[in-house]
Amino acid sequence: MSRDKILTAIRKNKPEAQAPPELPDFRRADVDLEKIFREMVVAMGGKFLQLTEKQPIETLIAEHFPNEINIASAMPGLPGSINLTKIRYPAQLEGVGLAILPAQFGVAENGAVWLTETDCGHRALPFIAQHLVVVLKKENLVQNMHEAYQRIRLDGMGFGAFIAGPSKTADIEQSLVIGAQGARSLTVMLY
């Protein structure tokens, strides 16, 4: 059996045991998380919007996506126009123009947000939607990826992803083009 052959060869050929290193989390004091996060979201090609009492989600969505009629929302208390509970196959999500999803937290050093299958309802939704809005609390920002992985428990989770900015490519002559195979835009709303 190949499994045993491979493992036997590895046991024979592997070098002397080497201890794993300690992992520091490289966190710094006095970091303006919100400012860095906002800058990195924009640097990755995303749009950053601040939610306030005067500017709630509904208002900003209406303002920034005035013509969008196919909206799928996984935000509690914010119904979209598409009923996600009726979706049986992921391909049925193909018509989604805008998906509004809650993110568990954001990472300041790279502008990424962490989304899980449980929060999104459907794994395909953040990718198949033409445009994506993610909403998160300003308390839920971390400095870097070390801290990010301290907040995650992959064991027992079906699927989760960091998303930083809209889908992009530079495969033709190194020219940056936004909107390759996934969402054409990403808007991060912080409250």
Binding site: A43, A112, M145, M157, F159, F162, A164, S167
Partner: peptide, 13 residues
């Protein structure tokens, strides 16, 4: 600073 998508697959859909 990171790829746009960093996906973690544990279980089938």
């Amino acid at each position: 600073p990171i790829t746009v998508y960093t996906s973690h697959h544990q279980q089938a859909k």
